[in-house]
Design a protein around this nucleic acid. Structure first.
Lengths: 133, 133
DNA sequence: ATCGTTGCAAATGTTTTGCATGTCA
DNA sequence: TGACATGCAAAACATTTGCAACGAT
């Protein structure tokens, strides 16, 4: 496997990235595949999975597991470490950077004698538009 | 289905709870099943899944999805809302309650016009014992 | 007898892999 | 020609469900 540039180098990778740009928030591999098919692209499900795997490794997309166990993918604006605030209704997502949180995490960990290797925070709820309607 | 007491009322539920007490941290359904089998208990995999489902609904055990997509379960000491600090090596886990975090989450959400329905935070790293050895 | 529990087998759904084919340098 | 990329079909998973047998009240 050759190192892929940030833009995605294979046909499948380009197609998947394009689909992710349209996606309101996190989309599953199956959804991406269906969307591509619907838009006339002829990409196999296998290639979608492989493209997502590559893109994830390179860091171009973020992965999130749903409660149902489905992996969902999202193209993130920021390439820095951040967390998500996702609307359950319309799928709108806000990327939030949180230095205080990072600090707090490190603090709590060290207070328990732990070294932090990784952490995840996901907040789900309703965005302003959906909460009121 | 009848309401099950906190102790677990079916044979499968009792067995699963017992297995979870021994578990150093989160264990998958398959692991629990294997452990029960190894210890001589004759419990079907199906019953393990069903027991875990019931126990989860009642709130006796917590669920956590691994990156691999496997659901893992843990018997939690606290029945209040809390987060986990898990050691990747030995599996030791600390349950941490974090009022500041909850406040911060609510704050960030409202700043973006969101209403918070749910949130998850997982911290993984190395405990003191494993970090130094 | 009745009703919940059990567990096998089969179904489901996602993701991965084997393999033959296509494509581009 | 050679190294990938592709996609179908099949496999590998975790998990759920249908269903008949079982156990306790």
């Amino acid at each position: 496997m050759i190192a892929t540039g940030a833009g995605g180098v294979t046909r499948a990778q380009r197609a998947v990235l394009a689909a992710l740009v349209d996606a309101p928030s996190f989309a599953s591999a199956q959804e991406i595949h269906a969307r591509l098919r619907a838009s006339g692209e002829t990409v196999g499900l296998t290639s979608v999975y492989r493209a997502l795997q590559s893109l994830t490794e390179v860091g171009d997309v973020d992965v999130l597991r749903t409660d149902a166990g489905e992996a969902t993918y999202r193209r993130c604006d920021s390439d820095r470490h951040h967390h998500h605030l996702v609307c359950r209704h319309c799928g709108a997502a806000v990327e939030v950077e949180a230095p205080e949180l990072e600090r707090w995490v490190a603090d709590v960990a060290s207070r328990h004698g732990y070294r932090v290797d990784d952490h995840t925070l996901e907040i789900s709820g309703a965005c302003g538009r959906c909460a009121t309607s």
